[in-house]
């Protein structure tokens, strides 16, 4: 059940240019959160910016009741958020989303993420690792200036492959191509993906064509984040062409089974 809390900012770090990691005290949210859940942040008490901002949960420190999220400064909302200082209270609703990453039945899995889409994969990998699963990571970035969280993801994966589109850091090309190559040998039982839409489409196509379980975390413009306004619609794969039907990212998602959605 989601709660609204005023969470105290206790740590703030600009991990690479324009991307901030926040650690906040939010025991009520942390206790009931699962990997893949997100939160909605009201960045100011003013009437503008009006709506809350959806941000994924990056890390849950259940012991200390600390929640971590990472965000990129995009427009006015994330810009205001980035100016919060240690000790400030941040208005957060969470955990949100009934569609979360499911790990239990798989023993050998792969996570694949691109750019700022890698954040929700961290808590998933951490929990999978703790449960003794074998987990490989494939993270793609534009170039060496955008590479982030390498150390953190190394700690929660068995093998980590970093790619850059231009080859300016480690492997050149797209993360999915490296995953495909490894698949022959590794036979992952499930692929977990989050990132830019073009990347997710390639991952989805590959998984469906090869009959591999695949869970994808999606984004869409949201009004309420609670499943009320029905704004963040995503088409169901089953719906007939002339009569589209929809799930909602905030309620059915943000994580969906790749075979259930069309985006």
């Amino acid at each position: 059940m989601p709660k609204k809390v005023l969470a105290k900012l206790i740590k703030k770090e600009e991990i690479i240019k324009g991307i901030f990691k926040f650690s906040v005290e939010a025991k009520e949210i942390v206790n009931s959160s699962k990997p893949g859940n997100f939160i909605e942040i009201r960045v100011s008490n003013q009437k503008d910016p009006f709506l809350r901002r959806p941000i994924s949960i990056y890390n849950l420190d259940k012991e200390n009741g600390i929640l971590e999220f990472i965000f990129q400064v995009k427009g006015s909302g994330t810009n205001i958020l980035s100016e919060k200082e240690i000790g400030d209270k941040i208005d957060i609703i969470g955990p949100l989303g009934n569609g979360t990453f499911k790990i239990d039945k798989y023993n050998k899995i792969a996570i694949i993420g691109g750019g700022i889409g890698i954040f929700p994969l961290y808590e998933l990998a951490k929990q999978a690792k703790k449960q003794g699963k074998i987990i490989d990571g494939y993270l793609g970035f534009r170039n060496k200036d955008f590479v982030m969280l390498e150390k953190e993801f190394k700690e929660v994966t068995d093998n980590l492959i970093i790619t850059t589109d231009d080859g300016s850091y480690q492997n050149k090309g797209f993360a999915i191509d490296y995953l495909k190559e490894k698949m022959e040998k590794e036979k992952y039982e499930c692929i977990y993906a989050c990132g830019p839409i073009p990347m997710l489409r390639v991952v989805q196509k590959y998984a469906l064509e090869n009959n591999i379980n695949c869970q994808i975390s999606l984004e869409e413009k949201m009004g309420c984040g609670l499943g009320v306004c029905l704004g963040c619609a995503v088409k169901t794969a089953k719906s007939p062409k002339d009569k589209p039907e929809y799930f909602h990212v905030c309620k059915g998602g943000p994580v969906f089974n790749a075979k259930d959605v069309e985006f």
Binding site: P49, F50, L51, E220, K221, G231, V234, S239, P244
Partner: peptide, 20 residues
């Protein structure tokens, strides 16, 4: 009724647009 195609909402100055 299944509603309109997304995007269905967007923020505007002190408000929002919807086409649910």
């Amino acid at each position: 009724k299944s509603g309109n195609k997304p995007p269905r909402v967007c923020e505007t100055a002190s408000g929002m647009l919807n086409s649910i």
